[in-house]
């Protein structure tokens, strides 16, 4: 028992590395927000483009979506960070992590938005078009508002799952929570910084997970 306390809850070690963990915490939030904004916006843009049903563009979008759904995010991140420099593209760790997870989120989000758009009754399109609303206006004012509501629960879950991937950025030298914690653990030869890191993630994500549980019941697919 003592051994556990000494190794996982050494208060003195914890106090020493708290500032590091805090700075990692802030960086994780930055990264997460950047990923969510970029991913959700790009996903929506792709779904809207897809609604126009232009063949070659659609194929490209489907390929993008399938690619980023099939590849492990860590693989994508490592390619962005370690492979691109060979052809002179130096993204830096933060940007590599941001783009990698942003693309992954965009791919999942596109699929969800698109399913939402498809699920809106055909009669809605016809009613709107019959009053002279053009295609894009119909999409924007009539179809998307209904589709987006349906996408809230799956999108929340997916967004949370993917933002947890910010921990992967430790692999590409971004000093976020996990990399701060492992560095401190190595220095201190003590596991307490990892405990702090774990607690930091709990503080960050436990409320979101609870929120998603609530949203699930609140916005459950119903019509």
């Amino acid at each position: 028992m003592d051994q556990i306390v000494a190794n996982f809850f050494d208060l003195e070690v914890m106090a020493r590395y708290l500032p590091d963990i805090l700075s990692g915490f802030v960086l994780t939030i930055y990264l997460a927000v950047a990923i969510v904004l970029f991913g959700l916006a790009l996903g929506l843009a792709l779904a809207v483009v897809r609604a126009f049903q232009i063949r070659p563009l659609n194929w490209l979008i489907v390929f993008f979506v399938d690619l980023f759904r099939a590849l492990p995010p860590l693989v994508i991140m490592i390619i962005f960070y370690f492979a691109l420099p060979y052809v002179g593209v130096e993204l830096g760790g933060f940007v590599a992590a941001w783009l990698a997870l942003g693309f992954v989120l965009a791919a999942f989000a596109e699929e969800i938005y698109w399913a939402g758009i498809l699920s809106v009754d055909k009669g809605q399109w016809e009613a709107a078009r019959s009053t002279g609303l053009p295609f894009f206006r119909t999409l924007r004012s009539v179809v998307l508002p209904q589709a987006l509501r349906l996408t809230i629960p799956p999108l929340t879950n997916r967004t949370i799952a993917i933002t947890k991937g910010t921990a992967l950025a430790s692999v590409v030298a971004v000093p976020e929570i996990l990399s701060q914690a492992t560095a401190a653990q190595a220095f201190a030869a003590n596991t307490s910084p990892l405990t702090m890191g774990a607690i930091a993630y709990l503080i960050l994500f436990a409320p979101l997970v609870t929120l998603s549980r609530w949203i699930e019941t609140r916005f459950a697919w119903r019509r």
Partner: peptide
């Protein structure tokens, strides 16, 4: 045009 199923915008 008026449809059998109304097709009002629910939102």
């Amino acid at each position: 045009m008026v449809f059998q199923s109304f097709n009002l915008y629910p939102h």
